[in-house]
């Protein structure tokens, strides 16, 4: 990962970047936060390179594939992530403990269905830490669930030929034991 957005200092007069979502909401965020979103960083860097000659600077970045609801959550997550990182700059173990604690609390306020939305946004923004975290969260949400629950969760339908699925279920009956109720 890049180190360019490390050490955010909330008291310093840092640059602000404006993000505009698909539902036309505008978010003003600190540069350190916006730079964690690699898609934004890429856009920002490209535009600034182009603008060096013309002397202008880009502050508004359109995000046509992200809605305001997941973006607001991602910004909160990102701020906290940077804060925890800055507070434990010299202690990786402590940082991980703080992060895990925050992530546990974070998940208490998120519905499993909301995770899908967050994953899509984090994936589009190329925000690696958040994407990894949400993928882990989905994995632990579905780990002990039934096949039917998972189909519903991901909006999938069975396309097995008649008998194929039954055969698999029979052969691997042990993997269907001890599954949570939907």
């Amino acid at each position: 990962m890049s180190n360019q957005s490390e050490s955010p200092n909330p008291t310093s007069s840092s640059n602000k970047i404006t993000l505009k979502t698909s539902d036309n909401e505008v978010f003003e965020v600190e540069e350190a936060v916006a730079m964690k979103f690699c898609t934004v960083k890429q856009y920002f860097d490209d535009e600034n390179n182009n603008n060096v000659t013309s002397g202008t600077s880009t502050t508004l970045i359109p995000l046509p594939n992200v809605e305001s609801h997941p973006l607001a959550i991602l910004i909160t997550y990102c701020k906290k992530h940077l804060e925890i990182k800055a507070n434990n700059a010299d202690n990786k173990k402590e940082m991980e403990i703080d992060m895990e604690h925050y992530e546990r609390e974070f998940l208490k306020n998120v519905m499993p269905q909301e995770l899908t939305e967050l994953i899509l946004a984090a994936n589009y923004l190329n925000f690696k830490e958040a994407l990894d975290f949400f993928c882990r969260a989905v994995a632990s949400a579905i780990q002990n669930k039934s096949v039917e629950y998972v189909r519903k969760f991901f909006g999938l339908e069975s396309d097995f030929k008649p008998g194929e699925e039954e055969k698999l279920r029979e052969e691997f009956a042990w993997s269907f034991e001890g599954v949570d109720e939907d």
């Binding site: 780990q143 698999l168 691997f172 042990w174």
Partner: peptide, 11 residues
């Protein structure tokens, strides 16, 4: 164990 079960989700 979950993966073996989820092979039944779809082809």
């Amino acid at each position: 164990k979950s993966l073996i079960r989820f092979r039944c989700v779809s082809r």
